[in-house]
Design a protein around this nucleic acid. Sequence first.
DNA 1: CTGTAAACACAACTGGAGTTCCATTATGAG
DNA 2: CTCATAATGGAACTCCAGTTGTGTTTACAG
Lengths: 203, 203
Amino acid sequence: MSVDLPEPGTVRPGGRTARVRSAVLRAAADALIEHGFGHIDLADIARRAGVGKTTVYRRWGTVPGVVADLLAQMAETSQPRSDTGTLRGDLLALAHLIRRTLTDPLQGPLFKAVIAAATCDEQAAEALHRFYAIRIAEWAPCVERAAERGEVPAATDAAEVVRAVSAPLYYRLLASGEPLEPAAADRAAEAAAVAAEAGAFAP
Amino acid sequence: MSVDLPEPGTVRPGGRTARVRSAVLRAAADALIEHGFGHIDLADIARRAGVGKTTVYRRWGTVPGVVADLLAQMAETSQPRSDTGTLRGDLLALAHLIRRTLTDPLQGPLFKAVIAAATCDEQAAEALHRFYAIRIAEWAPCVERAAERGEVPAATDAAEVVRAVSAPLYYRLLASGEPLEPAAADRAAEAAAVAAEAGAFAP
DNA sequence: CTGTAAACACAACTGGAGTTCCATTATGAG
DNA sequence: CTCATAATGGAACTCCAGTTGTGTTTACAG
């Protein structure tokens, strides 16, 4: 019989422990951007963070474990959303925000890496889903306000509209591989707006 | 100075070489389904295929290398597309085909794995993009016929409509993690059809 | 049918990712 | 401030994924 030991870092979360976590997550992001999810090891992350590799193995265990914690931290920082006064304007701003993020030379590879980690590890997958649940909830009010203004049916599923804007851009990044041009963001926003107005997201 | 040696398997592609490739790709698919992209090694694939691991390392080199070849083989087998006579009917059939594929206990994990491989390796990424280019081209005629019937503007980008149907389902699988219910396929098809009819894909 | 070299199998080897052990540091309660 | 111990650091160790070297099988040209 094994006793339930506390996870490392949960009993004394202050001072050094917090500094180590911060340094490791920052180093992990750098390493993921530089090498991608496939060619990374925890020893390299530890070296970059100026931390013993034993510490990293003990607290996080695996690369997806670090990614899961990194995603939890990324979920804490919220992106400010637009309020242009029209659904089209807001969705266009969202689409271009996503496009800029995914084509950014730093954030693009990072998002690819965390998604790759999520396909390999259940813990990372759950962290990724929480991350997107938060981001989607942050933008849902755009659609809800459009419903109040009468631009879309009152029963419209706001989160589904936000997902409809995001999906084509991620599909290009991960599956089909077409370049993420600004025109693609325009079409994603326009298509989602038209479909929402027609009640395609209000069952 | 190094001489340009031919790739293994290119000079004598018949008989044994073909059998080995077939066995290895089948074993690779099984292993990817069972363990996922993250927890796989070529020695295991070689064992399953009943082949020396040296052979696998020499011909394919890495796991993403095997995945790239597997995708090339997957691209050869074409899925029959529907012809219901209406754009809505065809897109609905496409959406449900994709949903069934991604929720299939065998094909779902396989697709997750090959997409993970593509995010880690350029060679696998190119193979994946070729795979989707072919699948999308196979379904584009649905939209082209709809254009001939006058259901959508003549200038409609057929491939973009097909991608618009696919994207929300892949987004759920890879990013947001919501379950892939039949209703999600219905909405993806409906939203794409509405947007196409409104000319959102005809710039 | 025969010969040659392309492709493969087997075994020994190697490097480094991940583990273990123990010493050291410093958090947080009293 | 003091003390118990949570958390980290460093080095030695283990194990196996991936490599290399060598001999065998077999596709295919002539």
